[in-house]
Design a protein around this nucleic acid. Structure first.
Length: 831
RNA sequence: GGGUGAGUGGCGAAAUGGUAUACGCACUAGCCUUAGGAGCUAGCGGGGCAACCCAUGGAGGUUCGAAUCCUCUCUCACCCACCA
């Protein structure tokens, strides 16, 4: 018998699979679309952590094939964007060349694992034939008014020299390079994602959406819907209402609040430093110099400084300006303070120090009045019975500081006093609406998507600026607008993209009037191409449409999507947004793109830290495969623990998997005859079929594999092995370790691939043991166990149990108070 | 500060109200071997000669019975964070 030699076997089968194209049978009636988050091909190549998710989708894909599904399992490259470009700049290669090189490496590395990818469907986001459609989607959004130009200040990374979306920040630092982001006012393309906020939120609760709770919660949190109200405070300047229409001065200050019930406790109002009212009322503000100084200082602060929770709150009163609370006509001071954010709500708030911690802090510092208008309900119904107090009935009653931020009952609130917070909010909002000075309003934390980057390596935005016609979309027939090949592509830092330097590219005819125009020089962000790629796999060669209708209907939605949890609020939100837009314009037929979403846990370095060059703890899969074989690493990564959990790599673990496969390999030589007998092994086999089937379906690969190991251990104890047992066992193993499974299958005398076989079904009659071990407990403690026929009745079990010496001894003279009998499991005597 | 999840042998972990520690790694002893980063056999939570007792971060509770459910508490990880 030859030794198990994974190198030979794996090369042989990978070649055979590629030649025969067994994975490309898309003719079966049932479909399954298995998708991995495609990688961006970095220069470092794959480490052992990357393939974990890919292995899982491959296991499920093969499992589904065996269960009679047509399986679409594609792979491609997300190659635009900052990481690829920064890598190219650092290594002084053109990004296009770098990407080409890196893809080659990645593809070679992935090839070693024996995945079922249909490489005919390979896509690359930097391919003009691909980004033609990315640009097409942008144009459609532009046509519908969802893509527009804006001059709002945005987050600017001084190191990457580009604007960033809110989603690209980590604690106010650039997510890519860690540089502090600054606010910069500049012309930007923005996608109106907030128009879809409600649908993005609501559809997360759709029944057919089988997503992990943590990711659903993260998205909900990010979208951040909050129901509140707008209240208009009238503005009083120098003692009179500022409604002189001639001067066009604003006469109302709009604030947003979720706690309208606390409005009688409002003792001042605050606007953020960005608020336009400051500029507009500058002549009325007595201390304008001081105010201006504060505003400039606040604007120069980085986001990190400004949002630092530890820092003390600061602000300046706008002297000469007062605002009036419409509910009680009280005149209140107005402040500017940078704890109020310009971009959320109306950029202005009513401050209620008694019931908001931030206002409380500010009011204490500036000695502003604090007026209580909400009391905890418990305080109003103090229990008469002192014993209740002793019993802890009032543990809920805790007023730790003078600031009470929960709902309760209103006091000192005019006709609204004695109402609960919830009721008061309803009534007050209704009153505001009646008086036309505000009303209910829903706000979102999520902001529109800042969609332009001042960089070279991205999809050109297909827009031409014409002096006469303004911004004009490039006609569909002229797509793609190809990214020009240039020598110099470093960022300019001026706010224009590097493309601005290429005169012959920039100057273009206006598609509308034929006059001189200039091309848009900003490019799209990294996330553009990945926002719809799953659709292109379905119909990658289609030149006329983004995706053909028939093909789209056949494959969508994606049945299984596997990837890292870090994409919960960016890629997954952007993709859902684009998908909903494509649904609205009739390109796709499903409301949501991804049916089941599973996130893959990180594989950390052997030192428990994140695998990275910096720590020198990177494990290269090529070397592991060279040493132990692809099947061993596949098996190990699925066995190492719960799929979603982060776990440190341990090469010793791969050794164990190799030992297991060595034993599997040896089995084939001792198979003696083809016969089935009904014995314990048969029962175990059917139990194993059940367990492996269920575990693969629910992503519990680790326990599926352990069941297979238990079965092998049992097989090894047998004197004679029967072909039927071994065949079924190999089939169960095949999704995990396809190469060795094929080889053994062939050696067993089959001339067709094991993946043309049918997945084994268990016999429900066989998974019931005939004899079971019945546990005997006394007062819940295990004291003995007896072998009895399964399905034994309580009466018989009791008799048998009470006949055991040990039990007799334990019970002694005590009387049995109660007997608990759990069928086929235990009998418990309470004495 | 908010959200989510998790704490079980030397290590990765299993068990979702019913025999805690399956399976794998590491380790120990023995066999085989010129040798072993190979293979085989046995052992492997702690204590005890034993009968047994004690153990799932900690403290209570519910239950005939709790790693699992409830209350409090400690620790760790990830995500969000002045969102009014």
């Amino acid at each position: 018998m030859k030794k198990y030699n994974p190198k030979l076997i794996e090369r042989k089968w990978q070649k055979k699979w590629a030649e025969s194209g067994i994975y490309k049978d898309y003719s079966k009636p049932k479909k399954f679309y298995a998708l991995d988050m495609f990688p961006y091909p970095s220069g470092a190549g794959l480490h052992v952590g990357h393939p974990k998710g890919y292995i899982a989708t491959d296991v499920v894909s093969r499992f589904k094939m065996l269960n009679g599904f047509s399986v679409l399992h594609p792979m491609g490259w997300d190659a635009f964007g900052l990481p690829a470009e920064n890598y190219a700049i650092q290594n002084k290669i053109h990004p296009e060349a770098a990407v080409k090189e890196n893809i080659k490496t990645f593809k070679k590395q992935l090839g070693l694992f024996g995945f079922t990818y249909d490489w005919d469907r390979e896509i690359n986001t930097t391919d003009p034939e691909y980004y033609k459609w990315t640009q097409w989607i942008f144009l459609k959004m532009f046509e519908k008014g969802l893509a527009f130009e804006s001059d709002e200040p945005i987050n600017w990374c001084p190191s990457c020299q580009t604007g960033l979306a809110l989603e690209d920040l980590e604690n106010g630092l650039c997510e890519r390079c860690g540089t502090q982001v600054v606010q910069k006012k500049m012309r930007q393309w923005v996608l109106k994602m907030t128009d879809y906020a409600d649908r993005l939120l609501e559809d997360l609760d759709r029944e057919e959406l089988d997503w992990e709770k943590s990711i659903v919660d993260q998205q909900k949190n990010w979208i951040g819907r909050s129901e509140g109200a707008i209240v208009k405070f009238s503005i009083v300047t120098n003692g009179s209402l500022a409604s002189t229409m001639e001067a066009k001065l604003p006469n109302m200050l709009e604030v947003f609040t979720t706690r309208l019930d606390t409005i009688f406790g409002c003792t001042y109002c605050v606007v953020g430093p960005e608020h336009p009212i400051i500029e507009k009322l500058k002549d009325q503000i007595k201390n304008y110099k001081e105010v201006e100084k504060y505003v400039i200082k606040a604007q120069n602060k980085t986001d990190l400084e400004r949002t630092d929770l530890q820092k003390e709150k600061t602000g300046v009163e706008l002297q000469g300006i007062r605002v009036t609370n419409p509910f009680n006509n009280e005149e209140l001071p107005l402040f500017v303070a940078d704890y109020v954010l310009g971009h959320y709500g109306t950029g202005a708030v009513m401050a209620v120090p008694a019931h908001d911690e931030r206002d409380f802090e500010f009011a204490k510092k500036y000695k502003l009045p604090i007026k209580k208008v909400i009391l905890p309900e418990e305080l109003l119904n103090i229990p008469r019975n002192l014993e209740d107090i002793a019993a802890g009935a009032r543990t809920e009653l805790r007023v730790e500081s003078d600031c009470f931020i929960c709902d309760g009952k209103l006091v000192n609130s005019g006709k609204y006093s004695d109402l609960t917070s919830e009721k008061a909010r309803e009534k007050m909002a209704a009153w505001l609406e009646k008086k036309k000075i505000g009303g209910k309003k829903v706000n979102y934390k999520m902001r529109d998507w800042v969609f332009s980057r001042q960089r070279y390596w991205g999809e050109p935005i297909p827009i031409i600026h014409c002096e006469k016609c303004g911004t004009v979309g490039v006609p569909e027939k002229d797509l793609p607008v190809e990214l020009p090949k240039v020598e110099k592509y470093e960022p300019t830092g001026t706010g224009e993209g590097p493309l601005a330097n290429i005169k012959e590219w920039v100057n273009a005819e206006c598609p509308q009037c034929g006059g001189p125009g200039k091309r848009e020089t900003n490019t799209m962000p990294q996330w553009a191409g990945s926002s719809w790629y799953y659709l292109r796999y379905i119909d990658p060669k289609n030149e006329k449409e983004l995706v053909g209708k028939t093909e789209e209907k056949k494959w969508m939605p994606v049945d299984l999507y596997v990837g890292g949890a870090e994409h919960a609020t960016r890629h997954l939100l952007y993709a859902r947004f684009w998908h909903k837009f494509l649904y609205d314009i009739g390109v796709v037929s499903t409301k949501e793109p991804f049916k089941k979403l599973v996130h893959v846990g990180l594989i950390q370095g052997e030192d428990g830290r994140k695998m990275s060059k910096r720590w020198g703890n990177v494990i290269n899969p090529d070397e592991v495969i060279f040493e132990y074989g692809a099947d061993s690493i596949r098996l190990y990564e699925m066995f190492m623990g719960p799929f979603m959990q982060n776990i440190a790599w341990n090469t010793k673990g791969v050794v164990g998997m190799r030992r297991f496969l060595d034993k599997v390999w040896k089995l084939k030589s001792v198979i003696s005859e083809q016969r089935s007998v009904n014995n314990n092994l048969e029962i175990l086999l059917h139990k194993t079929i059940k367990k492996v089937t269920e575990d693969i379906e629910s992503f519990r690969f680790n326990t599926a594999i352990s069941a297979l190991m238990i079965f092998l251990n049992e097989l090894e104890k047998q004197e004679r092995l029967f072909t039927v047992h071994c065949s079924l066992f190999i089939k169960l193993l095949s999704p995990f370790v396809p190469h060795i499974a094929e080889e053994i299958w062939e050696k067993l005398g089959h001339d067709k691939s094991i993946f043309f076989e049918k997945w084994p079904e268990y016999d429900p009659k066989l998974i019931k043991d005939e004899q079971i071990m019945l546990v005997i407990q006394i007062n819940g403690k295990v004291r003995d166990q007896i072998e009895v026929a399964s399905g034994v009745k309580e009466k018989d079990a009791k008799e048998l149990a009470l006949a055991q010496d040990k039990i007799v001894k334990y019970i002694g003279d005590s009387s049995i108070k109660k007997i608990i009998f759990v069928r086929d499991r235990l009998i418990n005597f309470v004495i």
